[in-house]
Structures are given as structure tokens and as C-alpha cells.
């Protein structure tokens, strides 16, 4: 990177940390540190909700998915607005009016302490793990750019978030989220502009989208009823409804964001902000990947975007095989480029028959390229240097580093790192809150001073930050990162949602019923995950339904026995 890029990166990072630390003065009491004394305006809480989800995984993994797979992934978010309405009507008023710090605290009032502690523990495990995956995405990028060790890189990314979260609490997290969201949006549109401006003369954005469509990348809707297919209209509207209700309604990293709002209605409005903007924002993220693909239809891309793996293949025992693949790739690229140019020309001439002919030629060229790429990736895996190798996460960083002007590279690296930082900050803050409120204060020191709890909360934030770094190094080996995070969640989310459904919608549900139901729900998910090929999104439905059915049955028996 150029010195100017480094200057932008360092200056903004220092400013973000400094500004976070300035807010320490408002965070000297427990409700100030964890809930900002419920003083955050709805729009800031809403941006914070969105920023916590929009991680570096979105910037790297999802844009990469847009490149390789197109817009299909957007189906995953179809249920989100519906989930926001459901939660605004149901759980939000319960949480807000009960004055709790954590979502799980509410469960003790409704059921018992074991149900609260167990759900909170599940949150700590799943969110702690996903926090690691969130760190690993930018760690991969920085290790690519700087040639640093992955662990050192993960620490470099996590430390700023730990510092301002430790000292500034939720105030620092929320207001930093607002600033970072602006940087991310500017960064996303800068990449889109670079990809579009990089198209050859005579090829417009309409032609680009037409080329993308010829390769299936604008195919958004898949109405097949295949339960093993990860992203279909049905999994996105039914199964994902359960996931989003659980994520936004029972995951402390989200609940804590809107508990800081000034009133119940402001908390609701902060959630509805995501309902309006999440799908359009994800479309922008995926379209970015699609347009980078179109850019590389006309500008020669590397055979593999991972420069480290390319270098290994070029210099190792695989050198001759790789050289042959590169030659084949070059031929396939020229064929596809000529077909794409032909498609643009046919569109300009409004020649329907030629358009269809060229669309078919683009499809064939793309299939040839994908074939060579798959063999190159297989070569990496067979060479033993990375047996789980996936090139998806290297696409966007490579485009940024090689095709954006000086200054913008720094801005984009900043956007990626800060996207991770604000997500990590929000998650560390919520992990610390659940650790202290649901365990330390509940079981070990119920009557200590606010000062004591604050000190312990800061230590907990630091410890969770270190834990995230450890998981990050492991998660980087698991392939496309976006799916890693969702897989972690799906093992618990549906079951935890089931417990909250029992709490709110089943008046006769008892603590024993909820607890046994929760165990049954997790067992059901484990069984489905182990012995069937059902897509992970549907596991949320399985978990929630199992908890409600078993929980209701056991509650009925429990009440009968007591009578």
C-alpha cells in the first residue's frame, strides 16, 4: 500500500479509538456502561443494529459470493423485515418494560434461573465463536496485504475494538458504529464506481448486467422446494424468519443495541430501520461482487485471487501443472471476453438473434473458466498447503489492492477493518454484559458496587477479545466465512427462540418445561445436522418447533404433577 493509504488507515483508526475513549466519562455506572442510561436516539441505535451485522465478512465473503454466485444469496434476507415487525409487536415491549440488561434475565422472571443461565451460556458459546470468525475475515486480508502472521494480524484488528469497548461501554460502541457505517457505505460505492468506470469504452452498466445475467448471476429467485438447498425463496422466507427472530430477538449482541433506546417505540423504530434498509444494503453488497465479476470479464483476472497460493503453486512441485492451467485459463478468458464484447455489440444493434447467440457463447466461456479455476483450487488442496482452500474471500481485497487509486485503497482497507471492529465491539460488549449480569452478578457477587462490576466487565471484555483472536485463526481455515458464522448460530438459534416463544405465547409453560424443551430442541438440531442433508437454515425451524412442542408437553405434565 502507498504511504497515503497507510496514513488514512492509521489516522482514522487512532481517531475512532480516541473518540471511543472520550465517552468513558458517561460510563461510570452500570446502566450507563451497559445501556447508556437509555439515552440513545432511535436512529443511532438502528444504525448500531445494522453496523453490528455488517461485518468484514460482509465486505469480503458476501461480495465474493456476489462474484462467484450472483444475487442468489439475497434470498437469505427476505424474511428480515417480517421478523422485525414480529419482534416489535412481541418481544421488544417485554424486554423494554421489564428493565432488564440481558434478554436472558427476562427468562428468570418468567421461568427460572437454570433456563436463564443455560440460554445465556449458549449465547456466550455461539457468539464467542462467531466473534472469532468475524475477526478472521479482515485478518486474512491484512495477512495477505502485509505478509504478517495470522495471529499477529488478528490481534492488530481486535485490540482497538477491545480498548474503546472496555473503557467507553455501549456509548462508545454505538456512536463509533454510526461513524463506521458512513465509512463503509462510502467504501462500497467507491468500489462499485471503480468497477463500472473500469469497463471498456462502449460497454455500459446495462451491458455489464446483461453479461452477468447470461452467467446466471442475476438469478435471484429460486422457488424449488429442495430442503437441502441452502438458498431458496422458501428457506429465505420461512426458515430464515426463525433465524432472524432469534438473532434480533434473543441474541444479546442485538437486543442490547435497542435496549439503549429512549422508549419502547424508539426501540421499535431502531429495529424497523433494518427492516427498510437491510435488503437494499445487501443488494448493493452483492451487486458490487457482480460488477467486479463484469470488470474481470474484460480485464484479465489472476487464475487464483490468493497471491500467496499462486506463488506456492508457481514455485513448488506443481509448477508445470499450474503453468498449463494458466495457459488454458488465458485462452478461456479471451474466448469469454470476445463473447461478452459481442453481447454488448449485439445489444447496441438491438439484434435479438445475435444477443441470444452471444449469451450462449458467454455461458460457454464462463463454464470453461470455472472449470480451469476449479482445477487450480483443487491443485492447492492436493498440494497440501491448504486442504480447505476457497478463493472466494480473496476476490474483493485483490480488486481493491490492484485496481483502486491511491487513497481509496486506504479507505477501503479502513472500511473492511472497521466493519470488523464495530461488529467485534458490539459483540464483546454484549458478551461482557451477559458474563457479568447473568453469571458473575447473579451467582458469585450479587451485591457488589457498580465500580466493582465495571472493573470486572472491562476485564471480561479483554478476555473475550483474546478468545476471539484464538478462534479467528481456526475459523480462517473453514472456507467461505459467511457460512461459517451462520453455521455456528444455527446450532443454537432455533432452540433459544423456542424458549422465548414458550415464555411469551404459552401461558402455562413452566421452567422445567422450557429447560427440557431446550435440551430436546438442541438434540433435534444435532440429529438433523448429523443424519440428514437438510440445509442449515432449516435447522432453526427444527430447533424452535421441537422446543415449543416438547416444552409445552413437559409443562403440562409438570403442572399436573404439582397439582
Amino acid at each position: 500500500m502507498h504511504a497515503l493509504d497507510w496514513a488514512i488507515l492509521v489516522a482514522f483508526t487512532v481517531w475512532i479509538v480516541y473518540d471511543g475513549l472520550r465517552r468513558t466519562k458517561d460510563s461510570r455506572e452500570l446502566d450507563g456502561y451497559f445501556l447508556a442510561k437509555r439515552s440513545i436516539p432511535w436512529w443511532a441505535a438502528g444504525i448500531s443494529v445494522m453496523a453490528t451485522q455488517l461485518s468484514a465478512i460482509t465486505m469480503i465473503g458476501t461480495t465474493g459470493q456476489g462474484y462467484t454466485d450472483g444475487l442468489r444469496f439475497i434470498q437469505f434476507y427476505f424474511a428480515l423485515p417480517i421478523a422485525m415487525i414480529v419482534l416489535s409487536v412481541t418481544l421488544v415491549p417485554f424486554f423494554y418494560k421489564s428493565g432488564v440488561y440481558t434478554a436472558y434475565e427476562y427468562l428468570e422472571g418468567r421461568f427460572d434461573s437454570k433456563t436463564r443461565s443455560f440460554t445465556s451460556l449458549l449465547f456466550l458459546v455461539s457468539r464467542g465463536m462467531s466473534c472469532g470468525a468475524v475477526v478472521s475475515a479482515p485478518a486474512v486480508v491484512l495477512s495477505l496485504v502485509l505478509g504478517w502472521d495470522l495471529t499477529a494480524t488478528a490481534l492488530t484488528i481486535t485490540v482497538p475494538a477491545v480498548i474503546y469497548t472496555m473503557f467507553g461501554g455501549v456509548q462508545a460502541v454505538t456512536w463509533t458504529d454510526v461513524k463506521i457505517m458512513v465509512i463503509i457505505i462510502v467504501g462500497l460505492f467507491a468500489v462499485i464506481a471503480a468497477a463500472v468506470l473500469g469497463l471498456p469504452p462502449g460497454v455500459g452498466i446495462g451491458d455489464g448486467l446483461s453479461i452477468a445475467a447470461a452467467t446466471g448471476r442475476l438469478r435471484t429467485f429460486d422457488f424449488s422446494l429442495d430442503l437441502t438447498n441452502q438458498y431458496t425463496f422458501w428457506s429465505g422466507t420461512i426458515a430464515a424468519l426463525f433465524l432472524f427472530c432469534s438473532y434480533f430477538g434473543t441474541d444479546q449482541s442485538q437486543v442490547q443495541r435497542y435496549l439503549t433506546a429512549r422508549s419502547v417505540d424508539e426501540a421499535r423504530h431502531s429495529l424497523l430501520m433494518s427492516a427498510y434498509w437491510k435488503i437494499p444494503l445487501q443488494v448493493v453488497v452483492l451487486i458490487l461482487g457482480v460488477l467486479v465479476f463484469v470488470f474481470y470479464v474484460f480485464t484479465p483476472p489472476p487464475l487464483l485471487f490468493s497471491s500467496v497460493q499462486t506463488e506456492r503453486l508457481r514455485t513448488g512441485a506443481t509448477a508445470s501443472s499450474y503453468e498449463a492451467l494458466e495457459r488454458e485459463f488465458q485462452t478461456a478468458f479471451e474466448t469469454r471476453r470476445a463473447a461478452a464484447q459481442g453481447l454488448a455489440d449485439a445489444r447496441a444493434a438491438r439484434d435479438r438473434a445475435a444477443i441470444e447467440r452471444q449469451q450462449e457463447a458467454v455461458r460457454q466461456g464462463e463454464a470453461a473458466i470455472q472449470g480451469v479455476r476449479s482445477r487450480a483450487a483443487a491443485l492447492v488442496r492436493e498440494s497440501g498447503s491448504d486442504r480447505q482452500f476457497s478463493d472466494v474471500n480473496y476476490i474483493t481485497p485483490t480488486f481493491i489492492l490492484t485496481h483502486l487509486p491511491v487513497g481509496f485503497v486506504g479507505l477501503l482497507m479502513l472500511a473492511i477493518i472497521m466493519a470488523a471492529t464495530d461488529t467485534i465491539a458490539g459483540e464483546l460488549n454484549s458478551l461482557s454484559t451477559a458474563t457479568i449480569i447473568d453469571f458473575y452478578k447473579r451467582w458469585w457477587r450479587p451485591a457488589a458496587s457498580d465500580g466493582h462490576y465495571l472493573a470486572v466487565s472491562k476485564i471480561a471484555t479483554g478476555v473475550w477479545g483474546l478468545f476471539a483472536c484464538g478462534v479467528a485463526v481456526w475459523a480462517a481455515e473453514l472456507g467461505s466465512l459467511i457460512e461459517v458464522v451462520n453455521r455456528f448460530g444455527s446450532f443454537f438459534y432455533g432452540s433459544i427462540l423456542g424458549v422465548f416463544i414458550l415464555a411469551v405465547a404459552v401461558p402455562f409453560a413452566t421452567g422445567n418445561g422450557a429447560f427440557i424443551g431446550l435440551i430436546a430442541g438442541m438434540g433435534s438440531v444435532a440429529w438433523v445436522a448429523s443424519f440428514t442433508r437438510v440445509a442449515f437454515l432449516w435447522q432453526n425451524v427444527v430447533g424452535a418447533v421441537a422446543v415449543v412442542i416438547v416444552g409445552a408437553l413437559v409443562s403440562g405434565i409438570d403442572r399436573a404433577v404439582r397439582r
Binding site: P81, I85, F221, R268, Y276, I279
Partner: peptide, 30 residues
Amino acid sequence: MSEMRRSYVRVLVVWALTLAALYALQEFFS
């Protein structure tokens, strides 16, 4: 109708329009 209910209806309208726009994009370029 309360202000919150009006907000929910607006969300549903925007949601339907967004999905329709995505479908139109898919069909227009196919």
C-alpha cells in the same frame, strides 16, 4: 391507526416493492 401500525404497513409495502424490483431485474436481463 396508530403511528406504529402505519410504520409496519410501510415496511410491508417497501418489502413487497423491493422483492418486485429484484424479480423485475432478474426477468429484464434474462
